[in-house]
């Protein structure tokens, strides 16, 4: 464990807390893409299959349970909570996210470390997470006003993977010198997808203006 990875995990956890706070406090999920949240449930379930079979550390196990639990809670809120589900606007959540599953799965069948169920699904989860934010970014571009909590949620969700890139640099040059091409490339693609969001987010923060993404 190094500081970059710990900071990354904490930023990731914080983004989820910000989202749960927004939904629970405002009883509204306006501006949030249910499709991105559903993709994240699939990401966590396929990545943490070893939750009960491989013990890495207490921290690792606890965080996996927290990520699976909170992602399920968010999807539950948006689908079934009597008040929150009324605020979900499926007409603006238009991205065909199921079209992301097959290409990521096929790519994982072709490009992986070991051809085992665990490893192919773990690889699939990395490819899927790289593109899981697309429905949310598309929704933000179409929504007129982005509320602060939603903007902060997306910012921290993007920042966490950027911190993981620093963690990979640190591990490669200062620790085990092992190339991890699959997480590295997936993580870079994931972080790059946030590039324009980061630009407009920081610009709006500097100019103290409302965050607005160009359509």
């Amino acid at each position: 464990m190094n500081l970059f990875r710990l900071a990354g995990d904490m930023t990731h956890l914080f983004s989820i807390i910000v989202l749960l706070l927004k939904i629970h406090a405002t009883k509204s999920c306006s501006g949030i893409s249910l499709k991105t949240q559903e993709l994240y449930v699939i990401v966590f379930l396929t990545r943490y299959l070893d939750l009960f079979t491989r013990f890495v550390s207490l921290y690792n196990t606890v965080m996996k349970i927290v990520f699976i639990g909170t992602s399920f809670a968010i999807v539950w809120y948006m689908r079934y909570h009597k008040v929150v589900k009324q605020t979900y606007n499926k007409d603006e959540d238009t991205f065909k996210h199921y079209f992301l599953l097959l290409p990521c799965f096929v790519l994982a069948l072709l490009l992986h470390n070991e051809f085992t169920t665990m490893d192919v699904l773990w690889t699939f989860s990395l490819y899927l997470e790289a593109v899981a934010i697309l429905p949310q970014l598309v929704l933000l571009q179409q929504s007129r006003n982005i509320d602060n909590l939603t903007g902060n949620y997306v910012f921290f969700l993007g920042a966490y993977r950027g911190l993981y890139v620093l963690n990979w640099i640190y591990r490669y040059f200062l620790q085990d010198h092992r190339a991890r091409w699959i997480p590295w490339i997936s993580g870079l693609v994931q972080t790059a997808l946030y590039a324009d969001f980061f630009y407009y987010y920081i610009l709006s923060w500097k100019k103290h203006e409302k965050l607005k993404l160009p359509a």
Partner: peptide, 10 residues
Amino acid sequence: NRQPPKHDEL
């Protein structure tokens, strides 16, 4: 050097 455990990251 000791091989780090596989998939030790979240």
